[in-house]
């Protein structure tokens, strides 16, 4: 359990904001911080990691005090058992893939763990390569593995996939989910991609102006639950085709593609990769028994 109750004045670009966090994150949860740029999401992760010191408050993780402004307790980042993955990978350019992982593991780097992590995210064949020779997806897999060599309790992911294209993104999402479960991590993710948020998060924390304004599941937060249609699914737009006076929108719902007929006005601004709610009345579908 992460209990984080801190305050901090931030001098954000475009004016300062006052960050006021009141978070309770259960152990083993994967929670997404969601909100516009500049609302304090990255600062929240940096505060948890010990890279930014709050003005007041406390951070208690699994019963251990990491930060207490009054008692002047402030554990250093390396004492906090945290793995951090950034959008820009932040790999050491002069070290091979394996050396990046070993360096991340510190002096007691465990070669067996390095091996098993490289297996887990399919890096074995790349272990002798330098970061400059890797694709974006490969670099981010190295960054993810490196964040785990110190066996963290908490994994912090700051828009780790936003620079990657859709296919690679899906593969990395699988990797994140797998390591999150296998390592029993508590993971905090920053993401703007609704499909990704749906796929990965147990809970979503919505932030505005330095404060948590809502906490809910992705479904509660993003799906328009007030529409009365009972046949409702969220999916991802994978193709839009023109058909006479209409458009046929192909939507990936879990692992099936469904087609929805729409007018041009309804799909204005809709793009491939967007998350949509597909809604219909319960009176329309028919059932056929299978098998």
């Amino acid at each position: 359990m992460i209990g984080c109750r801190v305050e901090k004045d931030l001098n954000a670009s475009g004016g300062g904001i006052h960050l006021s966090l009141n978070l309770d994150i259960p152990k083993g949860a994967l929670v997404t911080l969601y909100g516009k740029s500049g609302v304090g999401k990255t600062s929240a992760l940096r505060i948890l990691a010990g890279l930014l010191t709050p003005d007041t408050g406390t951070i208690v993780v699994n019963g251990k005090v990491w930060f207490d402004a009054e008692k002047k307790i402030n554990l250093k980042p390396q004492q906090r058992k945290i793995g951090f993955v950034f959008q820009d990978y932040a790999l050491f350019p002069n070290m091979t893939v394996r050396q990046n992982l070993e360096y991340g593991g510190g002096r007691q780097s465990d070669p067996l763990l390095v091996d098993s992590l490289m297996d887990m995210v399919a890096l074995k064949d790349l272990q002798g390569r330098l970061p400059a020779t890797l694709s974006g997806g490969q670099k981010q897999r190295v960054a993810l593995a490196r964040a785990l060599v110190q066996k963290p309790d908490i994994l912090l992911l700051d828009e780790p996939l936003s620079a990657l294209d859709m296919g690679i993104r899906a593969k990395l999402q699988d990797d994140i989910l797998r390591v999150h479960r296998e390592f029993g991590l508590t993971t905090l993710l920053i993401s703007h991609n609704l499909g990704e948020i749906y796929r990965l998060s147990d809970r979503v924390i919505m932030m505005e102006g330095g404060k948590v304004v809502k906490e809910a599941t992705a479904d509660e937060l993003f799906a328009d639950r007030d529409i009365s249609g009972k046949f409702k699914f969220t999916g991802e737009v994978v193709r839009i085709e023109e058909a006479e006076i209409l458009f046929i929108v192909h939507v990936l719902i879990q692992n099936q593609v469904v087609k929805v007929v729409s007018r041009a006005s309804e799909i204005e601004g809709l793009q491939i990769g967007d998350t949509v709610l597909v809604a219909s009345k319960a009176f329309n579908p028919v059932l056929y028994k299978l098998g």
């Binding site: 328009d224 007030d226 529409i227 009365s228 249609g229 809604a279 009345k281 009176f283 329309n284």
Partner: peptide
Amino acid sequence: TTEVMLSV
């Protein structure tokens, strides 16, 4: 009537 949806 079975094709009309409502929203708040």
